[in-house]
């Protein structure tokens, strides 16, 4: 199902925290710098595990990526006023929980355009307000909540490391196969078959 992305027609399987998988086009996925760094040149052996995020969040994030595939190249953060009608609808139809989840996923996947629009949207909630008005807009976490946040971040870092290790492992396998010349591969296979034959004969 998954292969190195050389054309936009290539589809990749994404795995969510529920263990569900769904297709995302290579063109959409390439907007993620995290994906580009890990899988772009080597492909992925099986579904790509983004298991820290649920299916709804990942689908929302990649819905954005699919939509912006045909848009002109990203050239730095835009002001909220420059957003298209589609972009505004995309943000407006999310509740706050989904919005936060999308920011977290977009940040992990390093999708610059989406992350930047999300940040601008938050800045807009604070813009032009004084301290008292800002306090009403934001919730200030307790010490326990901050501790929990730190644990989550550590967990995410560990998960990212795991994904990177898997990618490195896949790359190593691919390189090993590519490096062996055809004659050597034929000889290796012949040797294996001979050993198998000999072991049968001995029995």
């Amino acid at each position: 199902m998954t292969s190195p992305a050389s054309s936009s027609e290539v589809k990749y399987l994404i795995e969510s925290s529920e263990g569900n998988t769904f297709d995302v086009s290579g063109a959409a996925l390439r907007q993620s710098n995290t994906f580009n760094a890990m899988f772009l040149n080597i492909g992925a052996d099986g579904p790509i595990p983004f298991t820290d995020y649920n299916e709804a969040t990942l689908k929302k994030v990649f819905e954005y990526c699919e939509h912006s595939v045909n848009e002109e190249n990203y050239s730095g953060p835009k002001h909220q006023d420059d957003l298209s009608k589609w972009d505004l609808n995309f943000f407006n139809e999310m509740d706050q929980k989904m919005f936060i989840d999308v920011i977290n996923a977009s940040n992990f996947l390093d999708i610059e355009r989406l992350t930047s629009y999300c940040c601008e949207r938050i800045a807009r909630m604070l813009r032009g307000k004084n301290t008292q008005e800002m306090i009403k807009v934001i919730t200030l976490p307790t010490a326990e909540e901050l501790e929990a946040k730190q644990k989550v971040e550590e967990k995410k870092a560990a998960a990212a490391k795991k994904v990177a290790e898997k990618a490195a492992e896949t790359a190593e396998k691919t390189e090993t196969l590519e490096e062996l010349p055809v004659q050597q591969l034929v000889q290796t296979t012949r040797n294996k078959l001979t050993r198998k034959y000999l072991s049968f004969s001995n029995e």
Binding site: S116, C119, I122, I138
Partner: peptide, 28 residues
């Protein structure tokens, strides 16, 4: 509902702060 600002990832928070002006950042 109120936005849990400090639960956002550090990089995102940095971007938000960057897009606030001097006065807004001081107020915040």
């Amino acid at each position: 509902p109120p936005l849990p600002l400090l639960r956002l990832p550090r990089l995102v928070l940095g971007e938000v702060f960057k897009s606030l002006n001097i006065g807004e950042k001081i107020q915040l």
